[in-house]
């Protein structure tokens, strides 16, 4: 194993890990740091469950190697809730019943967060486009769209 030190900012805090530089961010978040809120649905970039924010943009942590993370800022689902208070997006997913098995949800929440940061008042089409790479097998997406709309509404208050 070829390991090296990689430094980056994780959920607002500087961290340092000693890992193979071509390990994916997902492998390190889960298997090294045991930060399991970020989910592994396919490791192929097909499902979106592993979505995190890299310098504020939604990316697949399964398709990002540690060398690419060096010096950058990573936000995971655990980093959204400030002071123990869930983010408005998280609350909206809870309240609209958009969560069933919930395994895809951290990815959806991160993709939604990125959308609302870039575009605080997205149209329905914008929502569908922003989430088209996140797969959910439980909900049929109806309540997920409702959740995003509710988050938009709540954030606008």
């Amino acid at each position: 194993m070829r390991r090296r030190v990689v430094r980056f900012i994780l959920n607002g805090e500087e961290v340092e890990v000693y890992v193979p530089p071509a390990f994916t961010l997902l492998e390190v978040l889960r298997d090294v740091l045991h930060l399991t809120g970020t989910k592994d649905g396919c490791s192929d970039g097909d499902c979106g469950a592993c979505t995190v924010l890299l310098d504020g943009k939604a990316v697949h942590s399964c398709l990002t190697i540690m060398a690419q993370v060096e010096g950058r800022e990573v936000t995971t689902v655990e980093g959204l809730a400030g002071d123990g208070e869930p983010d408005v997006v998280q609350k909206a997913y809870v309240e609209t019943g958009a969560i069933q098995c919930g395994y895809c949800i951290p990815g959806f929440i991160m993709a939604t967060k990125a959308l609302l940061t870039a575009n605080p008042s997205p149209s329905e089409d914008d929502i569908l486009e922003a989430l088209r790479g996140n797969l959910c097998r439980c909900t049929g997406y109806v309540k997920i769209v409702e959740a995003v709309k509710k988050a938009v509404e709540e954030a606008g208050r």
Binding site: A58, H60, L63, L115, L131, R132
Partner: peptide, 12 residues
């Protein structure tokens, strides 16, 4: 460019 993949892929 808009169709090459998901937003996550397009971002990276």
């Amino acid at each position: 460019a808009n169709t090459i993949g998901s937003i996550q892929i397009m971002n990276k």
